[in-house]
């Protein structure tokens, strides 16, 4: 149960000449939910982009499921089992809901039916084009799409940002259900009140560096204020 699924060690990343990450480290064990936190612009999304190989680290190592993935192209990392739900609920707008889910499907326990069970709304809308869905439904679709690839690690980047409270509740309910099934999750989110109860571990970034790692209980108000308050 406690195998290390993902280990990121001291990675540094540049966008052109400007350095974005100055040494980010984090670990996700199997079955664990890890919260990646920090204010805006501190490197959370870059860390995730680097994990999914959309940006390449110039230093440091990323191991996923025992494999060094530093130099791997995106699609190979995804095949190893990284399921990304990108920021801003990005579906394939020109495809229907079902096409979105089926296009990247890989064998495993997550089938179309199970995704529909998790998000019944998607089943009602399965023949609609993704760009006709509401923001919340698109987010559900983006999560569903990542799940049908049967990832070992689900990566949620700002999954509840800008959504109506009712929809946020539904997404959190789904995340909890996933955790209960033993799904490993790396999650970025700003609403601490929802995030902390389900996280097993927290990692805080500041200015492109990991500055604090610990359990949610150890995250005092003081720390939260210092690293996350605005």
């Amino acid at each position: 149960m406690s195998n290390i699924l993902l280990s990121i060690k001291d990675i540094e990343v540049f966008y052109g000449p400007s350095q974005a990450l100055f040494g980010v480290s984090l670990e996700v064990k199997e079955g664990e939910v890890v919260a990646l936190m920090g204010r805006n612009g501190m490197g959370k999304t870059t860390t995730i982009r680097t994990l999914c190989k959309m940006s390449k680290p110039t230093k440091g190592d990323i191991h996923f499921d025992g494999t060094l993935v530093n130099k791997m192209p995106s699609h190979k990392v995804a095949k190893l089992g990284v399921g990304l739900v990108p920021e801003g609920r990005r579906c394939f707008a020109n495809l229907t809901v079902e096409e979105n889910l089926v296009a990247a499907q890989r064998d495993g326990e997550w089938t179309l039916e199970k995704v529909y069970e998790l998000f019944p709304r998607l089943e009602e809308r399965k023949d609609q084009l993704a760009n006709t869905l509401s923001g919340g439904e698109q987010q559900m679709l983006a999560i569903g799409r990542a799940l049908t690839t049967n990832p070992k690690l689900l990566v949620l980047d700002e999954a509840t940002e800008g959504l109506a409270p009712v929809i946020r509740e539904e997404i959190w309910r789904a995340v909890k259900a996933l955790k209960a099934q033993g799904q490993s999750i790396l999650i970025v989110d700003k609403s601490l009140s929802e995030l902390l109860p389900i996280a097993d571990h927290c990692v805080i970034l500041e200015r492109g560096e990991t500055v604090w790692t610990g359990t949610p209980d150890a995250l005092t108000d003081d720390l939260a204020d210092r690293y996350l308050g605005v």
């Binding site: 999914c52 959309m54 995106s74 995804a78 096409e99 990247a104 799409r145 690839t149």
Partner: peptide, 24 residues
């Protein structure tokens, strides 16, 4: 077909398609 869905996905955004494990 599924292939067609992936092709249209590639037209829209290759990076996003790669993130689902398909080489565009």
């Amino acid at each position: 077909s599924r292939f067609g869905a992936a092709l249209q996905a590639a037209r829209q955004n290759e990076e996003r398609l790669a993130a689902t494990g398909i080489r565009p």
